[in-house]
Design a protein around this nucleic acid. Structure first.
Length: 316
DNA sequence: TAAGATAAGAGGGACAT
DNA sequence: ATGTCAGTCTTATCTTA
């Protein structure tokens, strides 16, 4: 069941043996054999500008840049030029010149006239930077922009920091698209406190009537294991642990990242991989203590025996 | 040096007042 | 609206193997 949604790609560049697969839920590409991760996929969905035939070349229309929700005016701004000529190139009459001049003034003002527009300018400027820092796909960026505009419509941004709302929108978009980015990831990159993002996030969730599915700890695993460079074997075993755990109702209310991290750690211990809690804790973005707590719970409730250092199996 | 134990504190949800 | 409570996670420190 586990890897059915992965599409096979190419051979691994490091070990050469395994096939590169793409985890369609996270966009990460990794080797099925050694776990080598190339990069996180970034969907670039800009319009196709090349032409491969004469027909295509002639058919190709030039309509300016792609329209995007993530541009303050959706990329459709028209600016009145300064050369005082009409469409056929003839100079304008004096009265028309003054009219145009007045229009030009209002034209330039109207671009940032509404405070909302200024807000969007800053917000989407932030968003552009965050896209790079968090390796967000275009679809997440568009979704973020959509959410942010919705929030602005409902006046939720008033009195709150732009970056806080932006961060919350990004996090929401990530959750919605199944892109595994934690609250901490987003807060750190946008340089604001986690709790502020958290507050805005909950506000958005309530006010926009959105419901987020609980993060599946299984989805967190591929991210952690690629970050910590764990083997495929460990990952598969950890998956079975998580499946058992979720049927036994010990996963409710627990941080899915912590749970996934603990399952991976337990799997490492059983498979004698010699990976430390610290490494996994770093990769998962949780503390070692959290891993220990979940680890303990998993061991007790699933009654899993772990090998000791002397190689003797022992019931914990 | 890694792992385990313990305690204090923060933030938020549920519930009652 | 405000306060309390149980539960979770984090930070920090100490002990153990």
């Amino acid at each position: 069941m586990v890897f059915q949604d992965y599409d096979i790609d190419r051979r691994c560049a490091r070990c050469g043996k395994g096939a590169m697969v793409t985890d369609s839920s996270t966009g990460e590409r990794f080797c099925g054999e050694c776990g080598f991760v190339i990069n996180e996929r970034i969907d670039d969905s800009g319009p196709e500008r090349r032409a491969f035939s004469k027909e295509e070349h002639e058919d190709r229309t030039r309509t300016g840049g792609p329209s995007s929700l993530a541009i303050h005016d959706m990329g459709l701004a028209t600016i009145i030029g300064h050369d005082d000529r009409d469409a056929t190139g003839k100079p304008l009459s004096a009265s028309m010149k003054s009219t145009i001049k007045r229009l030009r003034t209002w034209d330039s003002r109207s671009q940032v006239q509404a405070s909302q527009e200024r807000n969007f300018r800053q917000a989407f400027g932030d968003l552009g930077r965050m896209k790079d820092k968090l390796a967000l796909s275009d679809s997440v960026v568009e979704k973020t922009a959509y959410i942010y505009r919705k929030a602005a419509e409902k006046n939720l941004a008033r009195g709150r920091s732009i970056s806080g709302m932006m961060a919350a929108s990004i996090y929401l978009a990530c959750r919605d698209t199944g892109t595994p980015r934690t609250l901490n990831d987003v807060a750190r990159q946008i340089n604001i406190k986690r709790k502020d993002v958290s507050r805005c996030y909950r506000l958005l969730l309530k006010e926009l009537d959105l419901t987020m599915p609980v993060v599946d700890p299984i989805k967190c695993m591929s991210r952690i294991s690629s970050q910590a460079k764990l083997s495929e074997k460990v990952k598969r075993y950890a998956l079975t642990i998580l499946e058992d755990a979720s049927t036994m109702e010990i996963t409710a209310g627990k941080d899915p990242m912590g749970l996934a991290a603990a399952a991976l750690y337990l799997s490492c211990v059983i498979n004698k991989e010699g990976v430390t809690q610290k490494v996994i804790a770093m990769a998962a973005g949780v503390t070692e203590v959290t891993i220990r707590n979940r680890y303990k719970g998993l061991r007790e409730l699933l009654d899993i025996k772990v090998p000791t250092k002397t190689g003797v199996m022992q019931i914990q």
